[in-house]
């Protein structure tokens, strides 16, 4: 059984829940509405073969697609979220956390692991958007720092997949300070000449964009991802004019010099492997995983 077929059951059940598509072997593209054979969509890493739309992936799926295998070691997985402020809006933060854990099957909005990419040992962190919009509170900040520390100790490159609404309001100023914390940790990585590859997914905004996500030695985005500091709605309200077509999308960022490249998800794994190998002066890697296309 290949890694892909192993994945399929969990992939299809999750997308069913999210989109409410009736049970079956067919799925609809969120963007072009074309009807797709579910197994084919999974084979394409959830990129629509017709229009190229990149559907959202969970952090786990992301890791499984990206790494050689699922034999990775989790970093700082036992950190517990703290309700610093006893925060309550329409719901208590505690209840929101419980719901987020159920919705995402993760205990926080970031997973950090040590694994292998084309046999190269690396550390990968991935944001889980289904956990309170991938927002960065103390656990996310701390887990990110732990991941950096593993890199420093074992001289490993770091790869981060960001998708986040920004800082987590429910943790007040503690969440803002995580921006300073993760940026300081990344400065250490720079000191030690260890590469940091930042991959921006749809959407990456606010405090995550304005800290770790924009500090990559190489910054890559998936196509058509919303990336920016302020959200488009806030900007529209402030400037009171219609935002230009494609504003804050990957292609806009590439054009204005904010990122190095846009890479289709189906080529991401090998593209990053090749970049990392060059930066750590290793031979060009070959794919160790069954070819996707």
């Amino acid at each position: 059984m290949s890694w892909l077929t192993r994945l399929l059951p969990s992939v299809s059940s999750q997308s069913e829940q999210r989109k409410g598509v009736p049970e079956g072997v067919w799925s609809k593209c969120d963007a072009c509405s074309v009807t797709l054979y579910r197994a084919e969509l999974a084979r394409q890493l959830h990129v629509c073969p017709k229009c190229g739309h990149h559907h959202k992936l969970s952090a786990r799926q992301r890791l499984e697609y990206f790494l050689d295998d699922v034999n990775y070691t989790e970093i700082a997985s036992t950190l517990q979220t703290v309700d610093w402020l006893k925060f309550k809006d329409s719901r208590r933060y505690k209840d929101r956390l419980t719901a987020a854990k159920q919705a995402s099957s993760e205990n926080e909005a970031l997973i950090a692991v040590k694994g292998r990419l084309c046999r190269l040992p690396i550390v990968v962190v991935a944001f889980e958007f289904n956990f309170i919009a991938g927002s960065m509170g103390a656990v996310v900040g701390e887990r990110f720092v732990h991941a950096v520390n593993v890199c420093l100790k074992e001289k490993l490159p770091l790869i981060c997949f960001s998708t986040s609404g920004g800082a987590r309001m429910q943790e007040g100023l503690v969440s803002l300070m995580q921006m300073a914390k993760v940026s300081a940790a990344l400065a250490k990585l720079t000191d030690h000449h260890l590469p940091f590859i930042s991959v921006l997914l749809n959407p990456t905004t606010g405090g995550v964009s304005a800290s770790l996500a924009m500090l990559g030695d190489v910054i890559i985005a998936e196509p058509n991802a919303l990336i920016g500091f302020a959200g488009p709605r806030v900007i529209q309200q402030t400037v009171g004019e219609v935002l230009p077509e494609g504003f804050q999308r990957s292609e806009f960022l590439l054009k204005h010099g904010a990122i190095d490249m846009i890479v289709d998800r189906r080529h991401l794994r090998m593209r990053i492997a090749s970049i990392v190998a060059k930066l750590i002066r290793q031979p060009e890697p070959t794919d160790t995983k069954t070819a996707i296309n």
Binding site: S211, L215, F229, V234, I235, F247
Partner: peptide, 26 residues
Amino acid sequence: GAYPGIKAERHNQSQAIANNLKVLSQ
């Protein structure tokens, strides 16, 4: 707060803030 504008985004507000955080830490 930071100014939420079209030009500010075009000039990469996120990077400008992030870079200051990194540099100030050292």
